[in-house]
């Protein structure tokens, strides 16, 4: 059971409190969508979980192992793969080298054999461009690359920060469908941050709404999607 347990998490950038006592439980084999307006603290939540931001209080644990004070490298080795917002591709490396980094982590975690074929099968455009520098990829191809790279590490938990940003609806649908399969088949735990609340709730099991660093709503995804008041107040659709 890989359950990500976050309790009382508080983080600040100098005087700005970005997270204020956040409690989230992301259960195994479920997609938990984290929604909220710009500046609500969604990215900060993921960055705090993956060790890039130090919390001022609260805990993060994976299956009961406390990871709160661990460095980002250790957290990655423990199986939490964070696909960051926007610039997750190392543009100076080739497509293949980017993927190899994920596979190296997978072998270090003894989860995968270091082969990249799984990703090339999943995303044929990447296979065609494997020798190219990553900065020549389109936005959609970059998103495939970072997600593929995260999958190669054989993660227990996948933290995705706005994977739909700037992508055509058809590609968003493809990526979200893929996520759903992955969760159902391998039992991965997913924490999905999205601006695009409607489509996120359509594939998520649970939804959480953040506002000004606090959790203001938490319910089944279907219930949240149907709650008009909440939608108008925080989600804007």
């Amino acid at each position: 059971m890989s359950t990500l347990q976050i309790s009382g998490l508080t983080a600040a950038y100098g005087p700005v409190t970005a997270l204020d006592g956040v409690d989230v439980t992301a259960a195994k084999g479920q997609i938990t969508a984290v929604l909220g307006a710009n500046g609500a603290g969604k990215t900060t939540l993921l960055r705090t979980i993956s060790g890039l931001v130090r919390p001022t209080s609260g805990t993060v644990s994976l299956d009961g192992n406390d990871l709160t004070a661990a460095p980002a490298e250790t957290i990655a080795l423990a199986g939490i793969a964070h696909v960051p917002e926007g610039r997750g591709v190392i543009t100076e490396l080739t497509v293949e080298e980017n993927l190899r980094l994920g596979a190296l982590l997978g072998s270090a975690r003894k989860r995968t054999d270091g082969s990249l074929d799984m990703v090339y099968d999943l995303f044929p455009p990447l296979a065609e461009r494997r020798k190219r520098d990553a900065h020549t990829l389109s936005g959609g191809e970059r998103q495939m690359l970072v997600i593929g790279r995260a999958l190669l590490s054989g993660p227990e938990v996948l933290l995705l920060d706005e994977p739909s940003l700037g992508l055509a609806p058809r590609i968003v649908a493809q990526i979200f469908g893929l996520l759903r399969d992955l969760v159902d088949r391998d039992g991965v735990t997913v924490l999905l941050v999205e601006q695009n609340a409607r489509s996120a709730l359509s594939i998520a099991d649970i939804g959480i709404v953040l506002n000004l660093g606090k959790v203001v709503a938490r319910d089944d995804a279907a219930v949240l999607a149907a709650d008009d008041g909440l939608r108008h107040a925080y989600l804007g659709f």
């Binding site: 993956s50 060790g51 890039l52 460095p71 980002a72 490298e73 990655a76 080795l77 793969a81 964070h82 960051p84 610039r87 997750g88 591709v89 190392i90 543009t91 100076e92 490396l93 080298e97 190899r100 980094l101 994920g102 190296l104 982590l105 270090a108 975690r109 790279r149 590490s153």
Partner: peptide
Amino acid sequence: TDLGLKMRAAAFSQEVSRLLGVRV
């Protein structure tokens, strides 16, 4: 080599490298 790849990754993007378990 893998080591060389990790060194280059760490040079180009510390944050992404750390997220990939590279001891930057």
